[in-house]
Design a protein around this nucleic acid. Structure first.
Lengths: 233, 233
DNA sequence: TGACTTATTGTAAAAATTACTATATTTAGT
DNA sequence: ACTAAATATAGTAATTTTTACAATAAGTCA
């Protein structure tokens, strides 16, 4: 806290950014979409995609814009994570950043490295290199938040294909919580979860194909409303 | 998003504030410490205590400063809540605010209305008036977060007196989750919670006095470390 | 067809939760 | 000192949930 009086306008000398942790799931692993920065500071460093927020832009809009520029995806739900505001975190001035995260289906789109990124690449969470700024901290605390939300909100389905097998769902949870679960018991547990069986099965698989399911979001939403249901894993 | 190119420095025209929801518990109710604003905008409106963050101040420090100015308390843990950045939320410019919350023991101190507050007062959560800015939203979503954390982290003890009865603990949870619980079963549930019985009892009470307990934080912390224990209510 | 792999269902034991009863301890009043 | 009232505390049996494991069904591949 300064000793001299600060005028109101002296406060309007900071910027803020949105950093967007984009999680995907493939080959049994959760991955984050990282970019290699194309400009200073931290040029050539790997980083979480992010950008300064425009003066009249709302925060979730900025997060959606970043996701869109990188992936072409729109209408993806953005989840707010933590805010990081250490005075020294940005070498060029006071920039606080609000972290968001999005869950997407990796196979649904193609990455296009955007203006501020030389490269963009999916990186498995246990192979994350040193990142620019405080992005290592942002990524790990956002992953903690993701894991926490996985137990209370039906967001696992945002990572899986629209039609998935029960084993795929189980493997996602086993990866996230680093446990192995009994297959039979897992199926009992997820029974009240509003999964709708489809008249389809796996194909091109060298064993008995598993039935495909989808998440029945309308049923879930009415259960939440009417029966005070709460998703729980 | 603008059509013309914005220079880097054009971004440094925003300010940010910290709003600090201070929760307390007395007379069987959770209350928030509100202030009546002494300055424009929203002069005379009730609001959550908050302030602009100084250019070189870290966010948790700003939150602690606000708490200290209002209550004289230091060394209280600050929990980050959500960040609110709607472009129209502040009439005098782009100000995004990071909400924090603190849990304190109401009886431990006296409120002193500070420079920016005409009045400060504890208000029960079901008697909250219309608030300045988007503070109604901030308060209610922060209370949701508090309730969520009450089930996963041992923060209920920050609201209760250091020495408390099991009934007081139960009543706090009954209030927060709007249920009534069986007394005998509640006691079984909290057994693994690292409560340490004291050689003291209630006084000045017109019936059999209850035993007093305290939260055994050291035991809790080692259990978390060594046994992978997780607080759960 | 039969060997093999995985999906799916079933079942019984164990553990946790719930509802309820019984008992003990203290205060206040006669 | 005794009784009544209020609350703390312990106990118990029924119910539900979780867990561990076995059994069966349904496909693929040679």
């Amino acid at each position: 806290m300064s000793l001299y009086k600060i005028e109101f306008n002296d406060f309007f000398t900071s910027a803020f950014s949105v950093d967007c942790v984009i999680f995907g799931y493939s080959e049994g692993e959760i991955k984050a979409l990282l970019i290699q920065r194309g400009m200073e500071p931290f040029k050539h460093f790997w980083a979480i995609p992010g950008d300064l927020v425009y003066p009249n832009e709302d925060l979730p809009d900025a997060a959606s814009r970043i996701l869109h520029e990188l992936t072409g995806l729109s209408n993806v739900e953005m989840h707010q994570s933590h805010t990081f505001g250490n005075p020294g975190r940005h070498p060029q001035g006071r920039v606080i950043t609000i972290a968001y995260f999005a869950l997407i289906r990796i196979t649904d789109f193609e990455i296009k490295a955007s203006s501020w990124a030389e490269k963009a690449q999916w990186v498995s969470l246990n192979e994350i290199p040193a990142l620019a700024f405080d992005h290592s901290t942002i990524l790990s605390s956002t992953y903690d938040l993701l894991k926490q939300k996985l137990t209370h909100e039906p967001i696992c389905f945002e990572l899986l294909p629209v039609r998935f097998t029960l084993n795929e769902l189980q493997q996602l949870y086993e990866y996230a919580f680093n446990t192995i679960m009994d297959k039979a018991n897992f199926r009992k547990k997820i029974k009240p979860l509003h999964l709708a069986p489809l008249n389809e099965r796996q194909i091109n698989v060298k064993h008995r194909p598993a039935k495909l399911f989808k998440f029945d979001q309308p049923a879930y939403l009415t259960a939440v409303q009417e029966d005070n249901y709460q998703f729980k894993m």
